[in-house]
């Protein structure tokens, strides 16, 4: 009886260990807003991404880490639009819908369903992307769009011609096993 307990406990521990976590703190997330008047782009090279082999996925972006060519724009992005002092992070928390064999190299088209939180407003989204598994690393790539209105990011009428209603987002992160 005692031995059975022991085995069960050990088994539980093993099962937890087998769900490996992949992680990076240097994922790249960029966004692009295009209108006839102005193109605006910025990149955050320090995005935090964690992926568990059971499909769970989490992304954390510090809004002040977005780098713009025009630093005045960067300040306005944080102060006026993202309100980074109130909402310092943009996050995604969800699960990959497909069953992936993480031990096999290859490219997998996947979708992730979960909560996208930007500017303090949460939206349920299913976002498509790609996982490229190569040896010990997983590259996560995704392109998707975000409507500013969905996250209550108001664009003043004065600059409405300069900022697109739909912002394109690009994610490129190289994940490594977390020790």
């Amino acid at each position: 009886m005692k031995k059975i307990f022991f085995v069960i406990a050990l088994g539980l521990m093993m099962s937890q260990l087998s769900a490996q976590v992949y992680f990076t703190n240097a994922g790249k997330v960029s966004f692009f807003s295009s209108t006839p008047v102005e193109d605006i782009k910025a990149e955050n090279p320090k995005t935090l991404v964690a992926l568990k082999t059971n499909g769970e996925l989490a992304v954390v972006i510090y809004n002040t880490g977005f780098e713009f060519e025009n630093k005045l724009m960067q300040e306005h992005f944080n102060e006026k639009y993202m309100e980074s002092e109130k909402y310092p992070q943009s996050t995604f928390q969800g699960k990959i819908n497909e069953k992936i064999d993480f031990t096999k190299d290859g490219e997998y088209n996947v979708t992730a369903t979960g909560k996208l939180r930007i500017h303090g407003v949460e939206q349920n989204r299913t976002i498509s992307g790609k996982l490229i598994i190569k040896g010990n690393t997983i590259q996560l790539i995704s392109n998707f769009k975000v409507k500013t209105a969905d996250h209550k990011i108001e664009i003043p009428t004065l600059v409405v011609a300069k900022i697109a209603e739909e912002i394109e987002i690009k994610v490129d992160a190289m994940l490594q096993p977390k020790k």
């Binding site: 539980l12 521990m13 976590v21 989490a58």
Partner: peptide
Amino acid sequence: NLLLASILVVFSSLTAFAQDDLMGMLQDAG
């Protein structure tokens, strides 16, 4: 042995909890 086993169970569930919370892990890594 029973005590040991229960400690192991508690411990394993603790590690499970820690790993489940991917978001918490990212917040700590910020």
